[in-house]
Write a protein that binds this DNA or RNA. Structure first.
Lengths: 154, 154
DNA sequence: CTGTATGCAAACGTTTTGCATGCGA
DNA sequence: TCGCATGCAAAACGTTTGCATACAG
């Protein structure tokens, strides 16, 4: 019952309440923008779309919100080597599934792949456990990237 | 015999000749600097050390050389999220072995790990082959990173 | 009401570019 | 000699910060 009541808000609002963060229009918009796309968006990509929804939003706020969401683990920050960070929502209902990237070193195309993750899961879990123990790390996430040349560029 | 003759030069000079690139003092120094350290060096780290060896070297040349070496696959470029790219020599004789990274999201400490690579090799090879086929990529490299919190920061 | 969140402008640090000069092949 | 490679200065770019204002709780 309590659960249902709390569920009335968007799926991320509980996290905000937990840390005493306020639910504001800019934050709702940034999350909405991220949710609406499957692309790997830079801060300015997010800003442009957010700005269309509400022109009063500022780029600085987009940066600050993305940073906050990254620290909460709600978004994941990537760098594909083109000089700007990219952001993706993770584990959101109806959103993208766990995936990794295939990066063309020539044209910078990014392919998401979600195949072959069963083998990965096994490998990652084992490695993660061993690394945690050996280096005393609390591991919360991982990324696997393959680099090469795409069909056009090879 | 021919092999031995060619071997007289530094291990990377053949690659330069192949693409018609000149062997210059700045380039020798940048490679020497990378070879002398096990750290993850930023362009300006490399510049500072190179500058000590030969003060006439310029930061721009360091950037250009690192970029060239990256494209040749002689160095690998990383971004650990602190705003500057890091560079590491790969596959050089006597240099660092194949490894991956454990990144503390709080203090940005980077741990290199070289353990558990047998399991990795098997997993990577299989996945790489399947991905190559499916997406028509020519895959030349990969990176695995684990994110979390180190002993001090957890 | 109180203090977090915001927008703007300005600052910051890294990386890139234009151009005249230097130097390897 | 010829043209790639260099160094310098300046520009460009993504990102961060200071500060006065707005607004959620």
């Amino acid at each position: 019952m309590v659960y249902l009541l709390r569920k009335r808000g968007a799926w991320w609002q509980d996290r905000f309440h937990d840390i005493g963060a306020r639910i504001t229009a800019p934050r709702e918009i940034v999350i909405a923008v991220l949710q609406e796309t499957d692309d790997h968006m830079s801060a300015s990509d997010v800003y442009i779309r957010a700005h269309k929804i509400n022109p009063s939003i500022g780029l600085t706020t987009v940066y600050r919100t993305l940073d906050m969401l990254t620290q909460l683990g709600i978004v994941q920050k990537f760098d594909f080597g083109d000089g700007k960070a990219r952001f993706e929502l993770v584990n959101n209902p109806g959103g993208k599934k766990h995936h990794h990237h295939l990066i063309c070193m020539n044209c910078k195309t990014i392919v998401d792949y979600t195949e072959f993750l069963d083998e990965e899961l096994e490998f990652i879990n084992k490695t993660q456990e061993k690394l945690s123990k050996k280096y005393n790390f609390k591991i919360t996430d991982h990324a696997i990237s393959f680099y090469g040349y795409c069909d056009q560029c090879r």
